[in-house]
């Protein structure tokens, strides 16, 4: 690991000031991606600004039709939360599939979302559950948050404080994990709202996105067979050792179909 300065601010203002003051400073949330990256010397920030000392960034609030998860809430808390399990079970289910048990005990929602790893799970929920990303400066609609590979709508110094998920009538997440890393090769979250079906896909492309094609088909008929008729365009899909773009397209279809089946089982 290269050398860096470590700060543990106690307020968001101080965190932002620290970031501005650092030559090449980075925020540190749960660290489950960042610390291994630093350990491999793949990043060399001047300063790490640990957000763990700031009150109010962690916790889960369930209100009417809305579940708000603080940015520093650990994946394990979301997965085990009785409130989330009752109000938005798909989110608890998804959080319980991130990484492994140790990662879930440290990793945070805000860290995962801010990183925009193309294979992370949470982004599928952010785009499909009509989320609102709350930051120190504004609110960003979930569907507009992820821009590309490791690139989000966040401005330099902007900190995610919470993500608010809209509660659908029914929803399900299906993940095809990478057998080595356990990240998502493909993850599909299908959510049925009063105003239509939303489909969030992670793993397949440069960043998580909503699938217009699948949404159109499922809005016409919320049935497994409707998925089969969709031609998944994989021109821009990722292709690597573990899955070609074409195979990822198949997995999108299969996971989407299974998500629909699971969602319908909810009744």
């Amino acid at each position: 690991m290269y050398r860096f300065n470590y700060h543990r601010p106690t307020s968001l203002e101080e965190a932002e000031q620290r970031l501005d003051a650092g030559e090449d400073a980075l925020f540190l949330a749960g660290g489950q991606t960042l610390i291994p990256t630093l350990n491999l010397r793949l990043a060399s920030p001047s300063d790490l600004i640990d957000l763990a000392g700031i009150d109010g960034l962690s916790g889960i609030d369930v209100a009417d039709e809305m579940v708000r998860v603080g940015a520093m809430t650990r994946h394990a808390e979301v997965a085990a939360s009785a409130d989330v399990q009752a109000s938005l079970p798909v989110l608890a289910d998804l959080a319980g599939q991130i990484g492994d048990a140790q990662v879930r005990n440290r990793g945070t929602l805000g860290g995962s979302v801010a990183n925009s790893d193309p294979a992370a799970d949470y982004p599928a929920a952010v785009v499909a559950l009509d989320a609102t990303v709350h930051t120190t400066r504004r609110t960003i609609p979930g569907a507009e948050f992820f821009l590309s590979l490791f690139e989000t709508a966040l401005q330099p110094g902007e900190i995610i404080t919470a993500v608010e998920f809209r509660v659908p009538k029914r929803a399900a997440y299906q993940k095809f994990p990478n057998p080595a890393s356990r990240y998502a090769v493909v993850g599909v979250l299908v959510a049925e709202f009063d105003d239509g079906v939303r489909v969030g896909i992670t793993g397949a492309a440069a960043c998580a996105y909503r699938s217009d094609d699948l949404e159109t088909a499922l809005n016409a008929s919320l049935a497994p067979d409707a998925v089969d008729a969709v031609d998944i365009d994989y021109d821009r899909f990722n292709s690597d050792l573990h899955a070609s773009a074409e195979y990822r397209a198949n997995l999108v279809r299969v996971m989407a179909r299974r998500a629909v089946e699971a969602l319908l089982r909810e009744g």
Partner: peptide
Amino acid sequence: LEGRAVKSCAVLACQVD
């Protein structure tokens, strides 16, 4: 760490103050 399993290669010593 606080009774929960974590990977100590993915935690900085200063984080556990």
